[in-house]
């Protein structure tokens, strides 16, 4: 779409786009190309000389069991977080769509965790599950489970998944509720007159109509689990115990800033960029973005 009526000046528009273009070039394009460039270099330990090594860094990554393990952890973590938060949010939204009284109040009370920083959400759950004083760890001990996310990798993974999902339910709930409220009542009522019970109506009419929203949220949730959850992992488990919660974005950080492996970290950045670009393209190409709100 283009405007027919335009102003014909030359200096002014350049001046207007300049700030954004300069910031984009300096802080986005240049660093990203640096990452691309470094990912094919091998630097010695003192950073004195570097050597062009083609794709050796990538080959090294994919033959490194730690990296493959981190990949697997990320897949488990994203699938669990997206599944849990989407499922809970859809269930709550379907219920909120049913009740006529108080739907707005429920929305307010469920939506606010969106404003909580991932790192803070992580700390809150970390505290509740603290093996020595946490209330949830105490309850689990009561039913005979000895919770310890400092030692047990599965416990640590459950901890970060719960914290990540707790925060994300609010967002999904908001979109599901908007999607549900946009479904024409007449369709649902016609089915009710034909004798379809609520459960059947949900799966045969409401859910298919909601699927564009669901697909869109799925992509958003995967992006969230891949990138925005750095704070949760860093503030609580620091990737441990024994790398059981080292998701990819945490590994880029720890290899680059703590391990000082520039080439390896840059190669990981490039792989992550490829993941984001794939997800974005997927979202634009195959998913109807104009979800009915």
């Amino acid at each position: 779409m283009e405007k027919r009526v335009v102003f014909s000046k030359l200096g002014l528009p350049i001046l207007l786009v300049a700030p954004q273009i300069i910031i984009t070039l300096v802080f986005f394009i240049w660093p990203a190309s640096q990452a691309l460039y470094q990912s094919v270099l091998l630097e010695d330990a003192f950073g004195l000389k570097s050597e062009f090594v083609w794709l050796d860094n990538f080959i090294a990554l994919f033959s490194d069991p730690h990296y493959l393990n981190s990949f697997a952890r990320t897949v488990v973590f994203s699938a669990a977080t997206a599944g849990l938060s989407l499922g809970v949010a859809l269930f709550l939204a379907a219920m909120a769509d049913r009740v006529l009284k108080g739907a707005t109040a429920y929305r307010t009370l469920i939506v606010w965790p969106y404003a909580v920083a991932p790192a803070v959400a992580g700390v809150l759950w970390f505290f509740m599950f603290n093996p020595s004083i946490g209330i949830l760890a105490y309850l689990l001990k009561g039913i005979g489970y000895d919770w310890n996310h400092y030692l047990d990798g599965t416990d640590a993974m459950i901890l970060v998944v719960l914290a990540a999902s707790w925060k994300q339910v609010s967002y999904n709930f908001l979109f599901f509720l908007a999607g549900l409220q946009a479904i024409p009542r007449s369709l649902v009522e016609a089915a009710a007159i034909d004798g379809a019970r609520p459960f059947k109506r949900f799966w045969t009419i409401v859910f298919p109509l909601l699927s564009p929203t669901a697909f869109f949220l799925l992509v958003v949730n995967i992006v969230y689990a891949f990138f925005d959850t750095f704070g949760i992992v860093h503030a609580t488990t620091s990737g441990g115990p024994a790398q059981s919660t080292t998701i990819l974005v945490y590994k880029v950080f720890s290899d680059g800033f703590i391990g000082l492996d520039l080439g390896g970290s840059a190669a990981q950045s490039v792989i992550l960029m490829a993941v984001v670009i794939t997800l974005t393209v997927f979202q634009f190409r195959y998913i109807e973005r104009k979800v009915a709100y």
Partner: peptide, 16 residues
């Protein structure tokens, strides 16, 4: 140029 930044969250290009 602006559009591309949509695809580059800060987490993937931290070191550079």
């Amino acid at each position: 140029v602006i559009f591309i930044t949509l695809m580059l969250p800060v987490e993937v290009r931290i070191l550079p």
